[in-house]
Design a protein around this nucleic acid. Structure first.
Lengths: 173, 173
DNA sequence: CGATTGTTGAAACAGTCGTACCATATACTC
DNA sequence: GAGTATATGGTACGACTGTTTCAACAATCG
């Protein structure tokens, strides 16, 4: 299953098919269904694993000690926009797009978006309006996601980096 | 072709198939290929038409007279986040996600992202650093796209509206 | 040893996909 | 009116999809 997650991260969710996946894993579609029950359950399991990995890597990838909100934001952006995170970012956008058409397949999708607020709220202490402020984290994640949309489309790293810097600058005041 | 665009906007790009499309249009897959050459060319034509429509509707939907940058930004957000624009927004995200896997199919995708800078730069005059400033429009569109990502996933209009308001507030200073 | 259970392989099923082929019908030109 | 281009319907092809069925193998247990 770990290797199935590798495969999906590498090849994408959109055109995922059991036979190529099985071939890449050295097994058969028969066994995939035997193990996971159905393709949908396999996808759900893979997504859960990918999310677990993402959270773990993020936790270990961010600067641990206290810092200014801007530094934290820069760290988050650097993490997400890193080329080695590209497969993960692609998966996020693929799931989102598919979820627009079939929301019922991704029941915990909303939580995957709002789940950042607790941790982000802490990191942004100082620019939030209070401990229960969800609006500032919403804006910060929107900037990151929007810039990721831009970066993954245009590949223009300089401009997107500068845009995040501009946001930090606005935040500082 | 106009009705094909209607259909794609209503049903989404992801699972688009010639036979259902032809049935909905009262014609046959045979004729779709006869008219468009191939499915890819059909999709390209439909996307071009959708973009044309989007640009036209946006031009007529925004307040025409001069206003503060925040008012313009609010107008853009109101336009994009309007429920009647949901099909168009979904199409944007679907194309983006598919473009991550098959960039070669969407040669003018980057221009669709950066094309906003000329018009947006004008509307944001006052908060830009100069006439050739692409960073501020980049950030503004990132906020809009990121909030659209959030809104289309969580459906939380209040929080996303407030987040845009917060961005305007930051921009004002 | 026999029997049952869990695991695997190969093939087939029913369906969909984009597309190509062949025929026909209509319309227009000479 | 004959001939030719344009448009359309029907059908079949080959490839692919997720899933099921049947058969065989291995191992465990009484």
């Amino acid at each position: 299953m770990a290797r199935a997650t590798d495969y999906v991260l590498a090849q994408g969710l959109a055109g995922l098919s059991l036979r190529p996946l099985a071939a890449a894993l050295g097994t058969s579609p028969r066994m995939l269904l035997y193990d996971f029950g159905s393709k949908q359950e396999l996808v759900a399991a893979v997504l859960a694993e990918a999310r677990r990995r993402g959270a773990a890597r993020l936790a270990e990838g961010l600067p641990r000690e206290a810092g200014s909100p801007e530094e934290h934001l820069r760290g988050i952006w650097a993490w997400f926009s890193s080329p080695e995170r590209a497969p993960y970012v692609r998966l996020i956008f693929e799931v989102h797009a598919d979820g627009l058409a079939h929301p019922e397949n991704y029941p915990d999708q909303a939580e995957a978006v709002t789940g950042w607020f607790d941790t982000l709220g802490g990191l942004l202490r100082g620019v939030t309006t209070g401990p229960g402020d969800t609006v500032t984290p919403t804006l910060a994640m929107a900037v990151v996601r929007g810039l990721l949309f831009d970066l993954t489309t245009t590949g223009d790293r300089r401009r997107t980096d500068l845009a995040l810097e501009r946001f930090c600058e606005l935040l500082r005041t």
